[in-house]
């Protein structure tokens, strides 16, 4: 009798553990296994030409000729989805990158993801509000809020990161006191700390199937080659003219630029 009772208990325990397993199954699966490097290349272009700082001359849809002297943007919160629909989120502390046209190495964003075949890539263009308001000791590397007025990516007077910074020259821009015809687009805004305000955080999702899925394996380095067409900043949902908007910083109009730059990226191919 005693042993029968024991068997019942044992069976219950086994059943319960099965139930526990089943519960786990309901949760969205994340790919498991050994991790390998996935490289995401941000190749900045202007229409059908490679972007060349200072020397390249380009024309936007408003018919304005311009050159680019500085181009930088934050890429963060990277996620990939495999062919079975399982999503993997790169751990937050390894998921903030600053892509700069002046620094070739920065244009290859490298993250570690489990081995597998990935058909979707997504990332945030900018810095999420959680990280934007985190204690300063947690904001190191590219997030160090010590940027200056030049290539810095941080606003000191209105605490927050500049997500996307593009500057250049155009005859269409009015002359500044030094006689230069510069345009400056500094786009940021994480939604506000104590009062709601601009939120220009944009998540970009890219389907890799047409251009080639990323086959991540140890000992190899899959490279997802993205093109970032800066003409889209001007020629997007809304046509933006340099003459009308030579300086766009923390203002309501910045949302128009941010809406346009969501169309910046397209997947060209993948090197596996």
């Amino acid at each position: 009798m005693h042993s029968f009772k024991h068997t019942i208990y044992s069976a219950l325990v086994v059943l319960l553990s099965f139930a526990a397993c089943k519960k786990d199954d309901v949760k969205p699966e994340t790919p498991a296994g050994a991790k390998a490097v996935l490289s995401i290349q941000f190749d900045n272009i202007a229409g059908d030409r490679n972007l060349q700082l200072n020397t390249g001359a380009y024309t936007n849809a408003a018919g304005e000729s311009f050159s680019i002297s500085l181009l930088q943007y934050f890429v963060s919160n990277i996620k990939v989805t495999n062919n079975s629909g399982q999503e993997f989120t790169v751990p937050a502390d390894s998921s903030y990158f600053l892509v700069s046209e002046a620094n070739v190495a920065s244009q290859f964003v490298k993250v570690k993801v489990p081995e597998g075949d990935y058909q979707t890539l997504s990332f945030v263009l900018g810095v999420d509000s959680l990280r934007s308001t985190m204690d300063i000791s947690r904001r190191t590397g590219v997030l160090d809020p010590s940027g200056g007025m030049g290539d810095g990516m941080y606003w000191g007077w209105n605490s927050g990161y500049i997500f996307f910074k593009m500057e250049g020259e155009s005859a269409a821009a009015p002359a500044d006191p030094s006689g230069q015809h510069k345009f400056r687009y500094h786009i940021g805004g994480f939604g506000g700390y104590s009062a709601p305000t601009l939120n220009n955080i944009k998540r970009i999702t890219i389907d890799l199937r047409a251009g080639g899925i990323a086959k991540v394996r140890q000992g190899r380095e899959a490279n997802v080659h993205l093109m970032a067409d800066i003409l889209k900043v001007f020629n997007g949902t809304r046509t933006i003219s340099i003459a009308a908007n030579p300086t766009v910083m923390f203002s309501d109009f910045s949302t128009q630029v941010a809406n346009n730059y969501t169309q910046l990226f397209h997947h060209d191919h993948t090197e596996n």
Binding site: T133, G156, S194
Partner: peptide, 24 residues
Amino acid sequence: GGVFDLDLQPIAPITNPVEMDETM
């Protein structure tokens, strides 16, 4: 109220061109 954390405050005057005009 542009700065929400005292730890971020000194960056503003240090980098302001009319105050200390320096880079961090």
